[in-house]
Write a protein that binds this DNA or RNA. Sequence first.
DNA 1: CGTACAATCCCAATAAGTAGGTATTTTCAG
DNA 2: CTGAAAATACCTACTTATTGGGATTGTACG
Lengths: 188, 188
Amino acid sequence: MLSGNAVIIHISPIIQQGLKNILLARNIGISDIMNAFPECSVLSEWKNMLLFVDTQYAEEFKKHGKIMKKNGNTVFGIGTTMSANQPDLYFDEILNIYDNADIILQKINDYGTGVSDYKSNNQLSAREIEILTKIALGLSNKLIADQLFLSIHTVITHRKNITAKLGIKSISGLTLYAALNNMVDSHS
Amino acid sequence: MLSGNAVIIHISPIIQQGLKNILLARNIGISDIMNAFPECSVLSEWKNMLLFVDTQYAEEFKKHGKIMKKNGNTVFGIGTTMSANQPDLYFDEILNIYDNADIILQKINDYGTGVSDYKSNNQLSAREIEILTKIALGLSNKLIADQLFLSIHTVITHRKNITAKLGIKSISGLTLYAALNNMVDSHS
DNA sequence: CGTACAATCCCAATAAGTAGGTATTTTCAG
DNA sequence: CTGAAAATACCTACTTATTGGGATTGTACG
């Protein structure tokens, strides 16, 4: 299930796509990806959205900041330097492209209260990771139980705990999460 | 392991994923994504590969550059500043993250003469691909039907055809297929 | 010693997907 | 124009997943 709406405003196609992948891995839906600021009429329509904006757009942002922060929107700046950028008047939080995925998602979670209940994957136990990899490989609960010599109930319980910890409900979301976190070898 | 002939060596997960998406869209397979330089023994095994390396790794690169350029490999530096980085002793070409996708792919094409399409041409229809992307996003048949103004039966029928054509039964398998073929896209 | 948590097991109800079909309309290349 | 493929819609029976409760061990930590 998609559990949120995000807009990416960044001129770099690499960062657009990279952020897209990371957000999609968490099943955070992306409403739009744009290279520059849209018209105010568009801005004012966003409600309860996650906005990801290049920190270098600070000047443009001054003109639109108030509108963007209206209606429950959360604005994340995307920094491209190693230097520690701090949240400021314009941005609720700064995402640095050198942050690892866990940190990025944690920052999003801190502000995206309506988005999901994210917890970093280091809170997954070894057994849960083991289960998750098998889910991502398309095995049914029954097969996982057989392979690990567990009852199917145990597998289901692990699964419930995994979805609770990650905030990812769908099989495809878990699969993407596992793939993007190198938990599963993918062969095309 | 992803199959293909490109390797991404970059600490930023956003850039890793973003470049991955752009390369996959170009049918360039990705063999590996890593955060730091591997052992020389690994480096020396690469042949006719496209290597994408953070320009900030220049120091490490000095030690490994010769090996990396051996065996027909092409080395692209990934720059993160607006300043115009030029190809140099270490890098055959500099990709700037602010380059648009066309320029990035043109630069790659100029050097990636040995690149071959790794992706099998899928025999899926446009509609089936549309359905598949939504499956990979974790949408239920019901939601897919609603979004595309179809009945749930039609979605199920498409789904059956997709699984028949690809020989992939599980949701996670379809998700990985969609991800590896760059079909996973933001919902609009 | 008590708390937290991982790992294990169980049940029942509901939701969702799969596996067999059949069948009409639309689109498009020959 | 015609046939093939695609897209659409429907059905039943069946399997699997999800949800929301329980519960019991064992172990690590202060």
